[in-house]
Design a binder for these strands. Structure first.
Lengths: 350, 350
DNA sequence: GGCACGATTGGAAGCGCTCCCAAAGCTACG
DNA sequence: CGTAGCTTTGGGAGCGCTTCCAATCGTGCC
């Protein structure tokens, strides 16, 4: 712990619980001690004396009092409104959360976490009621989200993940889903496929809708029809399994799935019907989660560095807190088209 | 100040930020408003009047001020000092965390989370510095853990998960690892196996060591030798793969693995060497995580209801907070021997 | 009608900290 | 040696809430 009691009362182990204790111990005023602790101006000699006492006293400032007096606490909220039962096994969220926790921990910031244990209204209420928070990061995926609305209309600094909104002055970290979906669809077209199907993500989610738009744009530009080549999915493997069956029936020679999980499902179905990937049906996913490269054949997909997204969101929020008047931080993360054997067969890429 | 004059003004949407705002709006004192909010005594008429204002005013008490004045915040800390990269995919921790978040959310308590992003010393420091907390739950697995020590010697109410210690007056939720390991080993012996091997968990962890002890106790009681039948593992699938190879070489006719993940690894190895489970080698795990029943053959294992552990820990902590003077809460959760085809072949159990 | 006693209520003192502001101390210069 | 212009320091007023305590109000009873 702290120094051993050796010579005199001076070096005894004191417990200083408050600034006043410290003031008494050092002989300066509480205000001065506070200044030393917070890096305010103080004479070098004073500073040293206070710091020496600080060192052998195991004093910890009271965070609640700090927050009350200064408005800052060093704690941010993180809202990932997804049922915990789905959240933990999902590489998307866990990578995001890793990035957030990594950056926050590195910066010494605390974190309060809200998962989808309750309704969105309850969550919102709880978050707003938790006045310890300096700000919040929310991973929002649906187009309409009361938590996002509530947070944005509160005075709590907020950073959105995956919920870019042109019409708002919100800070966010997101990717250009539309462009990326366009790119991967165009890739499938460029290798000679004309009946490129799309298994969508959950309708009503930002990512789901934007990827649909990107897909349609690419098809349209190539002069290809797609009205009978889209099947609604919901980002799950299961939806990939069933939707792929439908697309095969309609003669698809390539399938772009809204994420890797549904692509894995689609792959199963294609295999089961005796077709080869990519010879008969080329396949592509989205996200490039861990398992994408381990599929057989490895999956062509769009890489978004999810851990980076999380870190970037945390960074954006901390910057926002450091400089409140500042304009919203809007970060558009790059994506990368990762071409593997599920679309270009022979050539071992990557 | 006294009541509002006109009836019209009465029903305007006011924003009351502080108790004083409310006091002004209702015409009673701040103290009375506080009493109404916190369920103190107040005349029925007063109570109604205040509550009516409360309803149309969207007032939220300031949590920092509350904590400072009363010492209570309704926020507890949860420490799961595991690298996030390992934590999220691991069913053990995610189920535990689910249980904790479920119960806390249900009880309206907030949660701050610390994962293994930093060193244990840093984590401890950070948790103790976070004086918002009313208490903390820590999932501790190693025999020696500075975070546990630090927490227990602080005055922060603490509940341990998986770290039963007879020599301390700590609250905990745990299982009897030794007894359960004994039981499952005895089961393997009872089906006629005499060379029962054990792939241990990480040495130095409470669960790992206690399961070793239980295994040895059972073997010893049956008059069987085990000195060449134990191989150190570390709870991973990989350690199961390699350790099993070694045990097969030494002629094991059954293997008890310290957890299901390493059992899955062991199963692979056994299969790869052309042996049958359970005919040639009976296999058992520990935990009964999701995938245990889906292995081929389904895995004999020890079920511990991990979600329940989490909920129980949360409950214990909240009780402790509600009644501080109370003796430590010590909860020993039941385990259940789940016998499936990996040990008893033909009979389809479960 | 007066009084004792319990139910309500308001005043005020903190909780531990930050930060403004003015007092004090110091330097250097005329 | 006085003073302007620094830097350093302490006093004190909050931040928004809880809670003790005493004042006030009402009630029932003699």
């Amino acid at each position: 712990m702290v120094e051993k009691a050796s010579d005199g009362a001076q070096h005894e182990l004191k417990v200083a619980r408050t600034l006043d204790d410290l003031a008494a111990l050092t002989g300066v005023s509480r205000a001065t001690v506070s200044r030393v602790i917070n890096g305010g101006s103080a004479a070098e000699a004073t500073r040293r004396r206070v710091q020496e006492v600080l060192a052998r006293t195991s004093y910890r400032p009271n965070a609640a009092a700090r927050k009350l007096a200064s408005g800052r606490s060093g704690v941010v909220g993180v809202v990932v409104h997804v049922d915990p039962h789905l959240l933990f096994p999902d590489p998307y969220f866990s990578q995001l959360l890793q990035g957030i926790t990594d950056h926050l921990a590195e910066q010494g910031a605390g974190m309060m976490l809200w998962l989808g244990n309750r309704t969105k209204e309850q969550t919102l209420d709880h978050v707003l009621g938790m006045s310890f928070l300096d700000g919040v990061i929310i991973s929002a995926h649906t187009l309409e989200d009361p938590v996002v609305d509530g947070l944005l209309s509160s005075d709590l600094p907020t950073v959105l993940i995956g919920h870019r909104r042109a019409d708002r002055t919100a800070s966010y970290v997101d990717i250009d889903n539309e462009q990326a979906a366009d790119a991967i669809t165009t890739h499938l077209i460029s290798i000679g496929r004309t009946r490129v199907g799309h298994i969508t993500g959950s309708r009503g989610t930002v990512a789901g809708e934007d990827r649909v738009t990107g897909y349609q744009r690419a098809m349209h530009r190539a002069g290809l029809r797609f009205d009978r080549l889209m099947v609604d999915g919901d980002f799950t493997r299961e939806s990939g399994v069933t939707s792929a069956a439908e697309l095969l029936e309609r003669g698809a020679d390539a399938i772009f799935c809204a994420n890797d999980a549904s692509a894995a499902g689609a792959l199963e179905t294609i295999r089961a019907s005796g077709l080869r990937v990519p010879e008969d049906v080329a396949l592509a996913g989205f996200d490039d989660v861990d398992f994408a490269v381990h599929l057989d054949p490895p999956l062509t997909t769009v890489r978004q560095a999810l851990r980076q997204h999380g870190m970037e969101a945390a960074r954006a929020l901390l910057q926002l807190l450091g400089d409140p008047g500042h304009a919203p931080r809007r970060v558009l993360m790059p994506t990368e088209l990762v071409i593997r054997q599920s679309s270009v067969g022979g050539v071992p890429h990557e």
